[in-house]
Computed example of a mutant assay.
Amino acid sequence: MRKTIRQVLVVALGAVTAVVMAVGPAQAKADAWTNCPYGAVCLYPEGQGPESSPSHVFWSYGAHNLSGQYNRHWIINNQYGGAHAKLCNGYNGTGTCHHDMAPGTGWSTDFTPVNSVVLYLP
């Protein structure tokens, strides 16, 4: 039985669609308690707990500058592989840094003096 080019393309596209649907999109799974994707560091809105949606999600190593973050905020380190996070009072990870967070830790702290969040591998 001879097939047309259109019939072959429809079969091929159907197979590709089935494979893509089976694999699904690559998504980072959020931790059930913190709504923070696995592999990220999350900062939550002022006065809201980690059960809310994060206002900032940091994925890459290095300094992440902040602006307009005052009073108490929750921050969660949901990274893996031993990656840490710390808070610094200067931009670009400068000045005094504190709150060295190991993976799987987090807390509520005053972000008024904090101007950057640094993700790093010790």
Rank of each mutant, 00 (worst) to 15 (best):
1 M>G: 06
1 M>T: 08
2 R>W: 02
5 I>E: 06
6 R>H: 10
8 V>Q: 09
8 V>E: 06
9 L>Q: 03
9 L>H: 01
9 L>M: 06
10 V>Q: 07
11 V>P: 03
13 L>W: 07
14 G>R: 07
20 V>T: 13
21 M>T: 14
21 M>K: 12
25 P>K: 13
26 A>Q: 14
27 Q>D: 10
28 A>F: 10
29 K>I: 15
29 K>M: 12
29 K>R: 14
29 K>G: 12
31 D>Y: 08
32 A>N: 12
34 T>E: 04
34 T>P: 04
34 T>A: 07
36 C>P: 01
38 Y>D: 15
38 Y>K: 15
40 A>W: 02
40 A>Y: 04
40 A>L: 05
43 L>W: 01
44 Y>S: 00
44 Y>C: 00
46 E>M: 12
47 G>A: 07
50 P>W: 09
50 P>L: 09
50 P>E: 11
51 E>V: 11
53 S>N: 07
54 P>I: 01
56 H>G: 02
56 H>Y: 05
56 H>T: 07
58 F>Y: 02
60 S>C: 06
64 H>D: 06
65 N>L: 05
66 L>D: 03
67 S>V: 09
67 S>P: 04
68 G>R: 04
71 N>F: 13
73 H>G: 10
73 H>Q: 09
73 H>F: 09
74 W>P: 10
74 W>M: 13
76 I>N: 04
77 N>S: 05
83 A>R: 14
84 H>Q: 13
85 A>Y: 08
85 A>C: 15
88 C>Q: 00
91 Y>R: 13
93 G>C: 09
94 T>L: 05
95 G>K: 02
97 C>Q: 07
97 C>M: 08
97 C>D: 05
98 H>W: 15
99 H>A: 11
99 H>I: 11
101 M>H: 09
102 A>C: 11
102 A>Q: 10
104 G>D: 00
106 G>S: 03
107 W>Q: 11
107 W>V: 11
107 W>P: 05
109 T>A: 08
111 F>D: 01
111 F>M: 05
114 V>A: 00
115 N>Y: 02
116 S>E: 00
116 S>C: 02
117 V>K: 00
119 L>W: 00
119 L>I: 10
121 L>H: 06
122 P>I: 06
